[in-house]
Measured scan of single mutants.
Amino acid sequence: ATNIVSKVKWYNSTKNFGFIEQDNGGKDVFVHKSAVDAAGLHSLEEGQDVIFDLEEKQGKAYAVNLRIK
């Protein structure tokens, strides 16, 4: 899926990962520091509106092509 609009559930800049809620009630989506860095960001804030693409690797959903709404 591409261009999903949602909100950051939480992000831990010390552990370099977090999760984004899915508005459709699906499972929370993992977001890694590499996606945050690629977006030119230093961190994410809880409740922040984001747009991302969903990529599945080894049966897990990852946020990629992250951008701020």
Rank of each mutant, 00 (worst) to 15 (best):
A1D: 09
A1C: 13
T2W: 12
T2Q: 12
I4Y: 07
V5G: 09
V5S: 12
V5R: 12
V5F: 10
S6N: 06
S6C: 08
S6P: 01
K7T: 08
K7Y: 06
K7F: 06
V8T: 03
V8P: 02
V8Y: 01
K9C: 05
K9L: 06
K9G: 03
W10C: 08
W10V: 02
Y11K: 00
Y11E: 01
N12Y: 05
N12P: 01
N12K: 09
N12R: 08
N12W: 09
S13P: 14
S13M: 11
S13L: 10
S13G: 11
T14R: 14
T14N: 12
K15P: 01
K15M: 14
N16I: 02
N16P: 02
N16F: 09
N16H: 14
N16A: 12
F17T: 01
F17Q: 02
F17P: 00
G18V: 02
G18M: 01
G18K: 01
G18P: 02
G18A: 02
G18C: 04
F19T: 02
F19C: 05
F19D: 00
F19P: 01
F19Y: 06
F19K: 02
F19M: 05
I20V: 06
I20Y: 01
I20L: 15
I20C: 04
E21Q: 14
Q22L: 13
Q22N: 14
Q22K: 12
Q22W: 15
D23T: 15
D23E: 13
D23N: 14
N24V: 10
N24P: 10
N24D: 11
N24S: 11
G25I: 08
G25Q: 09
G26K: 13
G26C: 11
G26N: 10
G26R: 12
G26H: 10
K27S: 10
K27G: 10
D28F: 04
D28N: 08
V29K: 01
V29R: 03
F30T: 01
F30S: 01
V31S: 00
V31K: 00
V31E: 00
H32L: 04
H32W: 03
H32P: 04
H32A: 05
K33F: 09
K33M: 06
K33C: 07
K33I: 06
K33R: 11
K33H: 07
K33L: 05
S34Y: 08
S34F: 11
S34E: 07
A35V: 09
A35E: 10
A35M: 08
A35W: 05
A35T: 09
A35N: 04
A35Q: 11
V36C: 04
V36E: 00
V36M: 08
V36D: 00
V36Q: 00
D37S: 13
D37A: 14
D37V: 15
A38F: 08
A38V: 08
A39H: 03
A39R: 03
G40L: 06
G40C: 09
G40A: 06
L41Q: 06
L41M: 09
L41P: 02
H42Q: 12
H42V: 13
H42Y: 12
S43E: 11
S43T: 14
L44K: 01
L44V: 04
L44T: 00
E45Q: 13
E45R: 14
E45Y: 15
E46D: 09
E46W: 12
E46R: 15
E46T: 15
E46Q: 14
E46L: 10
G47L: 04
G47H: 07
G47Y: 05
G47I: 02
Q48T: 09
Q48M: 13
Q48R: 06
Q48H: 05
Q48K: 05
D49K: 12
D49N: 11
F52D: 00
F52M: 04
D53P: 00
D53I: 04
D53Q: 06
D53M: 04
D53G: 03
L54H: 04
L54T: 06
L54V: 13
L54E: 02
E55S: 09
E55H: 11
E55G: 06
E56M: 14
E56K: 11
E56S: 11
E56H: 13
K57F: 13
Q58M: 13
Q58R: 12
Q58Y: 14
G59V: 02
K60V: 08
K60H: 09
K60T: 07
A61N: 10
A61P: 08
A61H: 12
A61S: 13
A61I: 15
Y62C: 08
Y62F: 10
Y62I: 06
A63R: 00
A63Y: 03
A63I: 03
V64I: 11
V64E: 04
V64M: 07
N65Q: 04
N65Y: 04
N65F: 04
L66H: 01
L66M: 03
R67V: 07
R67Y: 05
R67S: 06
I68H: 06
I68V: 13
I68A: 09
I68R: 07
I68S: 08
I68N: 07
K69T: 13
K69H: 13
K69F: 14
K69V: 15
